[in-house]
Design a protein around this nucleic acid. Structure first.
Lengths: 158, 158
DNA sequence: CAGAAAATGATATATTATAACATTTCATCA
DNA sequence: TGATGAAATGTTATAATATATCATTTTCTG
């Protein structure tokens, strides 16, 4: 069984750090500004293994001493999702960092209803099945939402 | 190319009628009460080819002369979704009638961003790909959300 | 019919999201 | 280098979506 959810003991700080580096690269190549606010929001999202809501981000920023209003957070989220740096989990009204912002993909999300962790998968079987189904009914895909809720392996077995 | 979205001239009243009959059967077999309010909400949902929001239902009920509050609508929606008579489209915060309430399925939704119509598919390729992906990472599925946005054939070609 | 359970009514409020306009920041180039 | 225009953020208000709680009504069951 492959690892999807992070294993115990993985170095999360390092993941966040490398995600930041990658985000900077993406912004650079898009001539988009990775401002302080955007960086803060991005970092907060990446620091969590769970999907984070806009108002949780708002609270976290406030706790950091910023006095921030909803539009500020939503704008940062809009920016980050448009660049593909962050994905919105529709069934949670929450946001999650994207592992592979540099490549086009139809991502899929596994969401554990017990521990709350989220994992992104980029599974070609699923993507291809979606593309094929769309083709067979003459549907032109613009965006896909594939969210799978249930129990991660840890929660199912412990 | 198979038909997914309804063709021009199909008899929608008849669809609604048969959906009502089927809903009654399902409620019967579950010993659940298909009350007036639930029937009204179900009918309003089925009368639309688009997904309908809770507050649109509220307005429609009000227009019919009922004076209804949000909890009433949300309770009816909860009842209907729990029985599988209606599905919630997460990416739209809206509800759509289920064609096949009588069988277990992982449904997929095609949502046209131009005309707004929604179509449910029950595509085994997609379902199997989802199940297989979950199995391969040790994930136990409780619920799936597969929503595909784009252009339906009509809108893409006209 | 009495009593319990289920459904709905009513009120209030929580949560999620955006519109509109003011101000600040930043890249550009005259 | 500092004027200027575009982009980003600040600020205020409000819209849209959803639920908690308790009261009342309806329905089922014995």
């Amino acid at each position: 069984m492959s690892d999807l959810f992070p294993k115990k003991g993985h170095d999360h700080d390092r993941c966040v750090h490398s995600a930041l580096a990658q985000a900077e690269k993406v912004c650079d190549s898009e001539n988009a500004r990775f401002t302080d606010m955007r960086r803060k929001v991005f970092t907060l999202i990446w620091q969590s293994h769970k999907a984070v809501t806009a108002y949780e981000l708002l609270d976290a920023l406030t706790a950091e001493g910023q006095r921030v209003q909803p539009p500020t957070v939503y704008r940062a989220l809009e920016f980050l999702t448009e660049l593909g740096l962050v994905h919105r989990i529709e069934s949670l009204n929450a946001y999650f960092g994207c592992d592979r912002p540099d490549c086009e993909h139809l991502g899929q999300y596994f969401i554990c209803t017990d521990c709350g962790r989220v994992a992104e998968a980029v599974n070609e079987d699923m993507s291809n099945a979606v593309r094929k189904a769309a083709r067979s009914v003459g549907f032109t895909i613009q965006a896909t939402t594939v969210e799978i809720k249930g129990l991660c392996h840890d929660c199912a077995t412990h």
